[in-house]
Simulated assay, not measured.
Amino acid sequence: MKNQTKFISLKDHSVSGESFDLIYSQYDDILETSPQPSAKDLPKYYQSEDYISHTDTRRNLLEQVYHIIRKSALKKKLLLINSFDSDTSNSLTTSTSNSLSTKEKKLLDVGCGTGDFLKTAKDNNWSVFGIEPNPDARQIANLKTENSVFDIPKLLDFEESSFDIITLWHVLEHLPKLEEHIQIFNSLLKPDGHLVIAVPNFKSYDANYYKKFWAAYDVPRHLWHFSQTGMKRLVESFGFKSQKTLPMIFDAFYVSLLSEKYKRGFMNPFMAFWIGLRSNLKAKRSGEYSSLIYTFKKS
Rank of each mutant, 00 (worst) to 15 (best):
S161F: 06
F296I: 00
K2E: 14
S187H: 10
E18Q: 14
V128W: 01
R138M: 12
P35C: 07
W214E: 05
M271R: 15
T57I: 09
N147A: 12
L10S: 10
I197A: 06
F270R: 13
Y24D: 07
N134P: 02
N124W: 02
G230L: 06
D116H: 14
D28Y: 04
S83E: 01
C112G: 04
A39I: 15
I68N: 11
Y205H: 14
R221D: 08
H67R: 11
H194Q: 10
K298M: 05
H170A: 05
I52G: 02
S53V: 14
L42F: 13
L92P: 00
T167V: 08
M1T: 13
E32V: 12
M267G: 05
I166Q: 03
S148R: 06
C112W: 00
N125W: 00
K154N: 10
K11H: 14
W214L: 08
Y51F: 12
E173L: 12
N201D: 08
I30R: 02
D50S: 13
Y294D: 08
Q36G: 04
F273T: 11
K119E: 14
A272V: 07
T5A: 10
F270E: 13
K212M: 10
N147H: 09
P135H: 03
C112F: 00
Y27E: 15
E173M: 06
P247M: 07
D206A: 06
N280K: 09
L292A: 03
E63I: 05
H54T: 09
E180G: 14
N90H: 13
Y210V: 00
F226Q: 02
R233F: 09
F238H: 15
E63Y: 07
T96E: 13
P269I: 08
T96V: 12
V255M: 08
L168T: 08
Y205K: 10
P35T: 01
S242A: 15
S48A: 13
K154Q: 15
N268P: 04
F117C: 06
K106Q: 12
S99N: 09
K106C: 11
S14T: 14
K2F: 09
D12H: 07
V219E: 04
E260R: 07
A121N: 03
D87C: 09
G113N: 01
R264I: 06
W274D: 11
S86W: 04
G230I: 09
D123W: 03
I249V: 11
P135D: 08
A215T: 05
V149G: 02
I131G: 03
D29Q: 13
N208L: 14
P133R: 01
L143A: 12
L195M: 05
I52Q: 04
S204M: 03
Q183N: 13
I68T: 15
K203E: 14
A73G: 07
S162Y: 07
Y46D: 04
E260K: 03
K122M: 15
E63G: 03
F7S: 08
K284Q: 11
H225Q: 11
F150M: 03
T120L: 05
K211P: 01
S291E: 14
N280L: 08
L178A: 11
K103P: 04
Y51C: 07
A215V: 02
L118Q: 03
L281R: 11
M248C: 00
E288W: 05
I140G: 04
R233G: 11
K263E: 14
P43L: 09
H194M: 05
A252M: 08
L107T: 06
G230M: 06
E32D: 00
S227E: 01
G287V: 08
E260S: 15
M267N: 10
D41P: 00
T229L: 11
L195H: 01
F150L: 02
